[in-house]
Write a protein that binds this DNA or RNA. Sequence first.
DNA 1: TTATAAAAATGATAAAAATCATTTAATTTT
DNA 2: AAAATTAAATGATTTTTATCATTTTTATAA
Lengths: 228, 228
Amino acid sequence: MSNCRQCIIKRFNALKTLTNDELENISDHKTTLIIKKGENLMTEGNAINGMYCIRDGKGKLTKLNTNGKEQIIKFIKGGDILGHRSILSEELVGLNAIALEDMHVCFIPKGDILDTIKENTQFSLKLMKNISHQLNEANTSISQMAQKPVKDRLAETLLHLEEIFGVDNEACIDVILTREEIANTIGTATESAIRLLSNLKKDGVIDLIGKKIKISNKNALKNISEGY
Amino acid sequence: MSNCRQCIIKRFNALKTLTNDELENISDHKTTLIIKKGENLMTEGNAINGMYCIRDGKGKLTKLNTNGKEQIIKFIKGGDILGHRSILSEELVGLNAIALEDMHVCFIPKGDILDTIKENTQFSLKLMKNISHQLNEANTSISQMAQKPVKDRLAETLLHLEEIFGVDNEACIDVILTREEIANTIGTATESAIRLLSNLKKDGVIDLIGKKIKISNKNALKNISEGY
DNA sequence: TTATAAAAATGATAAAAATCATTTAATTTT
DNA sequence: AAAATTAAATGATTTTTATCATTTTTATAA
């Protein structure tokens, strides 16, 4: 089992503020797990007794609506932390975390997280910064969901996906999503998402190579996302 | 100028964790201000150098969309704190805070907040809890905006408004909003909001008394908000 | 109080988006 | 590799929601 001190993924999150002693302690208590594609790491409505740190793999955070439809709230990848929101608010988990591909994840017990918060102000501040930033993003999302038409939201989402996951060696957005998942991200019907993707392709703004999407005219896409 | 130790509004927020010494210190540094109806307490995109604690008065947190439309993200009232998200994430203010009626507000400089975070773990934890809770609410909001029809969102919003602001002596929701503001909360056109309110009245679910709204059949409204 | 402006209400119409139905293509399974 | 399943694409249609136009009501100012 690997040691947290050697782990380089932590430099992307609040765990980078930990002292060597704190890291040793967490190393001793952490467990590592493999989440296979399609499996749940966290489930909405459940209690949680620790925080997850994603080592690698991509995933989605979703919410199940009353009508049974999935809403994708956020995408996750290596370096992201999960579960801290629930621990800090002392509420049940609010979102499902589902692997889009096999993931390697470390689990750190709640007690260690709370102890570290009490001892290490820098860690506290980084956690707060993380959640505060997420809150700001969520507020922006609400506004866009409420006021932008579906086409604009699709453009926005494609730009966002490229920003998060980067591009592969063929310049395609480096994540594989079904059309349904894209629809569930922008909050529309699958057929509408498919149609709008086809239109963007016809207009030369994107390229569709199987399930992969390549942004071929980023400026045009930005304009569309802003309603032009 | 009043003293924070005597202030009872703080029992509704993170400031209740402060020691007497900390309260004295903040009392010395705080300023009190009156925000008249319609005025801004915070403005989107601005820097902020402190945290606000609302003593009384009601307000709205809004975001201006690219098309110039206002989206109401959240309602605020006495006991709520503002600006801490921006301080903690070290980002610009994300929302406008606008008074719906005259407000009394205290301003606490950023330095005092950050000092207190470092000294008082309970205060830190309460702040984190506050933001974590807000993040959870925001995520729920995204999901509902994306997937619920306008009618359901209106029902949801009316229930939410009653929960936040309570009712007056005539059992009306105790806040005065224009139809446009209601529309900007649920993310629809003003005319649509008006029409749906009229329908709810016709169906005997609510009562419209001038600008005041009375929920006359809460169960029916709950069912509507859940899509039945 | 009357004039003026702003907000609310309502009808008619247009645009956006969802749903249903079917076909085509891509994956999986046998 | 063929069959079966699932996902993607596309057309036709309906539903939802927005926009435009106008009237009525309410609030504000002269």
